[in-house]
Computed example of a mutant assay.
Amino acid sequence: MLEKILCVDDDPITLMLCKKVIKKSDFSQEIDSANNGEEALKYFDNLIIENVNQANNFPQLIFLDLNMPIMNGWEFLDIFSKNEYLENFYKTKVIVLSSTIDPNDIKKSKDYPMVIEFLSKPITSEILEILKNIIK
């Protein structure tokens, strides 16, 4: 079981569903959320200020939507893959959770070393069971 997960999605229903499925499957003890990439970056900036070195202070996994207003998933990944974030959150992995079926998006996601999987929405308990074996 992971200590903490961050779900980043602009759709409140998707966020609610994601939280319910994660809680039900005992995949993570704590689930935080952000409505877009900008909120997610502010979340991580606050963790840096609060002292990220505390073991359970940062999420081990991010479920990231791609198509969001203000700052989309690609923009978030571009910034999150820069040194300031990589140095502090090198253990945090990303799973793109998107409704897109564009093969170019899947291919592009592999350009980011922190992205370990590209999944279609919605998240299910079956998918989480598979992920438990991938994320250790």
Rank of each mutant, 00 (worst) to 15 (best):
L64D: 11
L64M: 07
L64A: 10
L64Q: 15
D65F: 03
D65E: 12
D65Q: 09
D65W: 02
D65K: 03
L66H: 02
N67C: 13
M68P: 00
M68T: 03
P69D: 09
P69Y: 08
P69L: 15
I70E: 10
I70G: 05
I70M: 08
M71L: 13
M71C: 14
M71A: 12
M71E: 14
N72D: 15
N72E: 11
N72V: 03
G73S: 10
W74E: 08
W74Y: 15
W74G: 07
E75W: 05
E75C: 12
E75F: 06
F76Q: 00
L77H: 08
L77P: 01
D78P: 01
D78E: 14
F80D: 00
F80P: 00
F80C: 05
K82G: 07
K82A: 02
K82V: 06
N83L: 13
N83Q: 13
E84V: 05
Y85I: 07
Y85S: 05
Y85L: 08
L86W: 06
L86F: 11
L86K: 08
E87H: 06
E87Y: 06
N88E: 14
N88H: 14
N88M: 10
F89N: 03
Y90E: 14
Y90R: 12
Y90V: 12
K91S: 09
T92K: 02
T92W: 01
T92H: 02
K93R: 15
V94A: 14
V94M: 01
I95L: 05
I95V: 13
S98I: 02
S98M: 03
S98L: 02
S98G: 08
S98E: 07
S98T: 15
S98W: 01
S99V: 07
T100E: 15
T100K: 01
T100I: 10
I101A: 12
I101K: 07
I101D: 08
D102Q: 08
D102P: 00
D102W: 00
D102I: 05
P103S: 12
P103M: 05
P103C: 07
N104I: 11
N104Q: 15
N104R: 08
D105A: 13
D105T: 02
D105F: 10
I106N: 09
K107G: 01
